[in-house]
Design a protein around this nucleic acid. Structure first.
Length: 421
RNA sequence: CGGGAGAUGUCAGAGUGGUCGAAUGUGCCGGUCUUGAAAACCGGUGAGGGUUAUACCUCCGGGGGUUCGAAUCCCCCUCUCCCGGCCA
């Protein structure tokens, strides 16, 4: 959630930033109006309550002293009666305020390149040159067929379209990759976690998937539960509604989970192969960082994910997302795109974001500052949360298949994975 | 899924209609004492809103209700523990 006080005090700046993410000024004006309505309602309501409280105390005193309470009761009743409409007004304003506020995306960072869509993203660098093939490289679904690695038809039979089955060597490759990713992350200080793959609505709201993107989620019927679309949800929300101690920051976490997405808006896209599935495996990094130090953590995370691709010998490029392509919760995102020779293009394989205090506000993740001379700053502050894939497992399999293919369709296994298989 | 008990501050644990944001112990922070530490003693120590700062408001699992007044009474929900059923 955005900082409503900031919005109120810097309306021009805030609305310019959110314009990049397609938020209309009128929406923000509405938000601001609700916010000030709520504040003024609360102010009057609180003074009425103060009066009510003090009269109630008197009431007790009168009774003990055996005084007549009829007059006092009449006053107290009248005051109580008068509070009701104000209470209703405040409640309505609060409800409207928060239901609107929860749909407003995060501010993009000042440094984020301008642009409307994917087209305007900025390539920062390329790592490893694509290898040239003496033959025409095949796409991964052809290779899957040749090697019997992926059973698309039976995946569909078991569930529905966009589900598939990995078989034999491919399944072992998947397991090897998960272990390799987790081990590499652990070496960088990320503590491995094994978390629930089902989370409740409040957690999904904490990281920003709800209430706005409910259509993208698989919901458990009759329960307040959803299949997680990414491990970012459980890992970040591990500290939901907690106050951490400054000396524990940054918290670096990693975990492997399957991810479940309805892919509601992507009918017709990537229908062949396993690039876009309803269920895919991913190893995720999540960091909970001190606000002054989140940028350094962010860069470390990008480097870590890129190093993993390099270790696998997979050519990739590092791309900074423009304002228009940023996700809902993100202030700044860097994507890693891996080279797919069969498709003859770079495809996203990792996405690393700094959400700053946006998720922390929603999920109420704060930290207590170390005792310092500065007593004014004693207030608990929101942490910064960051997340990034390291890496998407299915897409890594695709990348290995396409980059390590031989002319006869057989596939080499990257050197670093040998000890895992 | 059925029966019983419970949910209070870091933790333990009192409080069953007013003077309770909450006893006491413990933990933590600061101080005295000490060569240093421990012990002992003294002081401080939950969260959110609000204010220049105070006042002041809200929060005793969550939501609703009764009452002038609710941690305390009533209803619903969630969770935890114990017993039984089922089960990797």
């Amino acid at each position: 959630m955005i900082d409503l006080k900031y919005l109120q005090n810097n309306f021009e700046e805030a609305s310019a930033k959110l314009h990049i993410k397609g938020v209309a000024v009128s929406t923000l004006e509405m938000l601001q109006t609700l916010f000030s309505t709520l504040k003024s309602c609360n102010a009057t309501l609180e003074s009425s309550k103060a009066e009510q409280n003090s009269m109630s105390k008197l009431f007790g005193q009168y009774k003990r002293e055996g005084k007549d309470i009829a007059e006092l009761k009449a006053k107290v009743d009248a005051n109580k009666e008068a509070m009701i409409p104000m209470q209703d007004k405040a409640r309505d304003a609060e409800e409207a305020l928060y239901s609107l506020a929860l749909t407003i995306p995060n501010f993009p960072d000042m440094s984020v390149p301008e642009g409307k869509s994917e087209e305007d993203n900025v390539e920062l660098r390329k790592v490893l040159a694509p290898k040239s093939f003496a033959f025409t490289p095949k796409e991964h679904w052809e290779l899957a067929q040749i090697n019997g690695w992926i059973d698309f038809e039976r995946g569909v039979k078991l569930a529905k379209s966009r589900f598939s089955v990995l078989r034999g060597e491919a399944s072992r490759l998947e397991r090897a990759l998960i272990n390799f990713f987790l081990d590499t992350n652990a070496k960088k200080g990320f503590v491995e976690h094994s978390v629930p793959f089902i989370n409740n609505a409040s957690m999904l709201q904490g990281t920003g998937q709800l209430p706005k993107f409910e259509d993208d989620l698989f919901k458990i019927e009759g329960e307040d539960l959803y299949l997680i679309p990414t491990a970012e949800v459980p890992l970040t929300n591990l500290y939901n509604d907690e106050i951490l101690s400054e000396k524990d920051l940054p918290l670096l976490m990693t975990g492997y989970t399957p991810c479940f997405r309805k892919e509601a808006g992507s009918a017709g896209r990537d229908t062949r192969g396993i690039i876009r599935q309803h269920q895919f495996n991913k190893v995720e990094m999540v960091a909970i960082a001190h606000p002054d130090k989140s940028q350094a953590v962010f860069e470390m995370m990008v480097e870590n994910a890129s190093d993993i691709l390099t270790a696998l010998g997979l050519p990739h490029r590092v791309v900074e997302l423009c304002g228009g392509d940023l996700g809902f919760s993100s202030a700044m995102t860097i994507d890693l795109e891996v080279w797919l020779p069969g498709q003859n293009q770079y495809r996203e394989i990792s996405s690393i974001s700094n959400t700053r205090d946006f998720q922390a506000r929603r999920a109420k993740i704060r930290f207590k500052a170390e005792a310092s001379a500065d007593k004014k700053n004693k207030k608990n502050r929101f942490v910064h949360t960051l997340n990034g894939s390291s890496l998407a497992v299915g897409r890594t399999i695709v990348a290995i298949m396409e980059n390590y293919q031989n002319e006869d369709g057989s596939i080499e296994i990257p050197e670093v994975l040998h000890k895992y298989m």
